[in-house]
Design a binder for these strands. Sequence first.
DNA 1: TGATCTTTTGTACGATAGTACAAATCACAT
DNA 2: ATGTGATTTGTACTATCGTACAAAAGATCA
Lengths: 236, 236
Amino acid sequence: MVRKPTSKETTRKPNMREAILAAAEELFAINGFNAVSVRDIAQAAGANPGSVTYHFKTKDGLLLEIYRRHCGPMNLRRSELLAAAKRVRDLQDRLEAVVRAYVAPAFTSGSDLAGGGARFTRLRAVMSAEGNEVARKIIAQTFDDTSHAFIDAIHDSLPHVPRTDIVWRSHFLLGALYYSLVTPDRVSRLSRGEADGSDAASAIEQLVQATVAAFQAPALDQAAPVRRRPVVSSKT
Amino acid sequence: MVRKPTSKETTRKPNMREAILAAAEELFAINGFNAVSVRDIAQAAGANPGSVTYHFKTKDGLLLEIYRRHCGPMNLRRSELLAAAKRVRDLQDRLEAVVRAYVAPAFTSGSDLAGGGARFTRLRAVMSAEGNEVARKIIAQTFDDTSHAFIDAIHDSLPHVPRTDIVWRSHFLLGALYYSLVTPDRVSRLSRGEADGSDAASAIEQLVQATVAAFQAPALDQAAPVRRRPVVSSKT
DNA sequence: TGATCTTTTGTACGATAGTACAAATCACAT
DNA sequence: ATGTGATTTGTACTATCGTACAAAAGATCA
């Protein structure tokens, strides 16, 4: 086993392995796992189908490697931003900073891979919807710690809101985040062209603003008795 | 009297066609369109694969029929609830009623089909993530009118918020709604068992409460100048 | 009952899926 | 240059896919 110690680590060969990863990520994120064949991926990467088997053994293995590539850097980036957000003194500002620390890395590049943040997040959204087993496992064991850290940080800013409510609302946040990446065109369509659903900056700002307000909503248990709840029934 | 009404409408036999529809809806909603084979559906329905072809011609035709079954009733139900909600006098109560009118039918039965609401909504979520063409077409031409009606109703309750923001926030609402139906177990897990993500009533209440607050958030354009935005940067 | 229409069954076909594997090719240290 | 391990290619195998279609079975009514 001879490694390559001589030349610098920045080996600059037209790496087929990377091309396959990039093509797979793109195709999976758009069409889902099952709709994309190994041959589709190979063709998009300019590679031979057998090459995929050689590098990743199976199609599942390829997906797993995509996750391995992104989870670490994105988690790290989030931890950094979360740590910085926690240092914000003003409670209101801190809440917004924490939410932003959660949202931003999902849209922007979470690693050195070009524009990989949004694409990988969209991939996660699609895999989640498809109930992909490989994705489910690695996500649960990779992101749950981070999710708990964010939930705790938000709870610190909103001590009067029960943790259960925080969990629900952060779940809604992730759902909104995912959906914004999955069907951005719907925003453009419903706004009759006034908004661009594909604009990451707009999406982030809108999402942060809306989510902060959602987190600040009164807790369910105390909201109910304070004001009567409007009872709506359809006619008849 | 000789001619009895065409047995099509009134027939009450153990309908294989219905069994296939129900099985397909269930399987598609859980595993996605591409992961489920016609044979899987037939087996789950206790039918022969050829029977699926006979009743629905193609797999796409089967999906289309599922949508046709649900879209009408769910839209109708939403319209009824929206009309009732618009009659609420208090502006704050009306907003909540409108949101509830949008959310509730997605969780509960939208038609006479047993418990079909949540299942069909989950199906829509999964098809949306997979970018299914059949679903995309029928959804856009069936639900966009309703979506606009809700957006307008919400805008009426919040005249000071630009329509663009309303669109974004209602988009987030749908994303949160979808995600709650796709991975309810995540709520249970992150709350460490304190919340049940599968409980429709809890989901509705949490979602309505959070969303109403999100809609009531200040508009983006006016929020920015009023308070300084906390700028967060990770330590370099 | 027999005739006719609807529905279900069984089977088969062509296409494509994931993957295995041997041969060919490349990269590179010696 | 040459040998060696890493990579790429080409091909093939088996399984399963969606769908077609003829035959069997069931239902309906003169």
